[in-house]
Write a protein that binds this DNA or RNA. Structure first.
Length: 114
DNA sequence: CGGCTGACGAAAA
DNA sequence: CTTTTCGCCAGCC
């Protein structure tokens, strides 16, 4: 299987996964990294999302860390903006943490490896 | 060209 | 709960 690490392919896979996140759900960087075949590249996922998809219209606010905590809340133009978007998606957010993260969490590997 | 940092993760203490 | 360590790669100084 594709064990070769391709930055372009990796980014494309990340975009694809993030774009298919259902409303009212959220996923983690590690989950995406795993889904694309790079378990330890969670950081690269964050970097790829760091550019916010550059007008790709990706629901980056649905991507949080493994603990369901919003690390990039200040990257959406204003603090609390990300939580607001999540709340609009039907996800309860308290402070920087998603409420019921366990049931809100969406595993992309289930939709990719299906 | 080397070192630091970073929307991270997981394990260990 | 907090803090530390290791891993991974890319971008910046």
């Amino acid at each position: 299987m594709k064990s070769d690490y391709d930055p372009a392919s990796f980014a494309a896979a990340v975009y694809d996964v993030v774009a298919m996140i259902p409303r009212g759900r959220a996923t983690s960087y590690g989950a995406i990294a795993r889904a694309v075949g790079h378990a330890n590249m969670s950081r690269m996922v964050g970097r790829v999302m760091g550019v916010c998809g550059e007008s790709l219209g990706l629901p980056a606010h649905r991507v949080v860390n493994s603990q369901g905590q919003l690390s990039a809340r200040e990257c959406f133009g204003a603090p609390g903006r990300m939580a607001e978007l999540l709340r609009d998606d039907g996800v309860e957010v308290v402070g920087n943490r998603i409420v019921g993260w366990r049931k809100v969490f969406w595993d992309p590997s289930e939709e990719i490896n299906i």
